[in-house]
Amino acid sequence: MIEPLWEVFVRSRRGLSHTHVGSLHAPDATMALRNARDVYTRRQEGVSIWVVRASDITASSPDEKDEFFDPAGDKVYRHPTFYEVPEGVEHL
């Protein structure tokens, strides 16, 4: 029997966001969470796990790459690069 595929997201520590780490097979959400714990956090990689059924993810298609992403390429004014940063400002 082929079991559903699940995508796994792990938050490595408090304050950071969950990051996609990989996928796995499991019969249901409860087992997916446990499998994720065993496969992806056995070296203390995380403090929180999300699992999402892969079929529930709506993804952009590679065919739409041009219209989705290319128009942003020449709009440099969307980057905050035109501001002078005052001396002594940290963490920017």
Binding site: L24, H25, A26, R34, D38, V39
Partner: peptide
């Protein structure tokens, strides 16, 4: 029965 279970039982 599955790779994930191998890892779980290994742990």
């Amino acid at each position: 029965p599955q790779l994930e279970e191998d890892v779980a039982l290994g742990n």
